[in-house]
Design a protein around this nucleic acid. Structure first.
Lengths: 149, 149
DNA sequence: CCCAACTGAGTTGTGCACAACTGAATGACG
DNA sequence: CGTCATTCAGTTGTGCACAACTCAGTTGGG
């Protein structure tokens, strides 16, 4: 029987760590005028441009309720362009603008800064990453079993 | 030189894990009509009742901008009571109502459910918790060095 | 061919997080 | 003692996250 003590709970550690990292990103991303979720979208697009909103949602696990306004803000900032697909008018393709592509240079140093802040070597990062992925998968599977799909 | 690839980044793993766990809590806490941050406040109060808003903020790392409306909602729900301190009119003490204290019984089983969903034994939880705490501390120290306090 | 079911993006409403601010209460100090 | 800085809770405004919904577009079955 696990206790209700705050200190014992892994979830609170996770929640704290996630907020600490987001807070560091806030400071680091100030230069680029991006929020952390916006940065994640840019990362996805720098890796592979011209994606459907649906594809971005699948990669980042975000629904249209989060992505639509976020992408609208990125478009207003001049970083991305949105076009309805001709062959399927329901879909919207998101592409980097020239400015958006250029911003990648300014972002080059960010992963190293974050890595340094975490104080982990490559092996430590890889191990923790693997553990977190396993935990995410386990928790999601459990939740999906609860919620009748 | 770390890459800008989304898959490589520990931060994204952390972000995903945190959201997955919160999502599971959403399902589990539905019965109690609590959100996850509200549940954290209740945990803190079940552990030690009659706390100042400032103390809750220090324990949960939340400022008044988050806590004030959250506590107002808990009060509206009849779970807590807020009183200005007589000896220092700036401070507000938060106490459990009878209903709030009673809710603890309904919450007893939650940690075990979450533990089961994570699929970790006690040692695994303890180890991960320790790693996350170390990471949080490291990241916060780094960020505080960046931001001229 | 038609229509019912489904899909994809967007909107609305709620509740965090957090920065920046307000305003009252307290404390420090010259 | 007066005043100036600090402290504490609360408010305002922005941006996620997510549920629930809308609505146009597409698809599949009869």
């Amino acid at each position: 029987m696990a206790s209700l003590r705050l200190d014992d709970q892994l979830c609170f550690g996770l929640y704290s760590a996630s907020r600490a990292v987001t807070s560091l990103y806030r400071a680091v991303l100030e230069d680029l005028d991006l929020t952390y979720p916006q940065y994640l979208v840019m990362l996805a697009l720098w890796e592979k441009d011209h994606r459907l909103v649906k594809e971005l949602g699948a990669e980042l696990n975000l629904d249209s309720g989060t992505l639509s306004p976020l992408l609208k803000r990125l478009q207003t900032a001049g970083l991305v362009i949105r076009n309805r697909q001709a062959d399927d008018e329901r879909s919207v393709r998101v592409s980097l603008s020239e400015t958006g592509r250029a911003l990648r240079d300014k972002a080059q140093g960010i992963p190293d800064v974050i890595g340094a802040a975490m104080g982990l070597d490559d092996a430590g990062v890889a191990r923790m990453r693997a553990e977190l992925d396993r935990l995410t998968e386990s928790v999601n599977a459990y939740r999906e079993a609860l919620t009748p799909a």
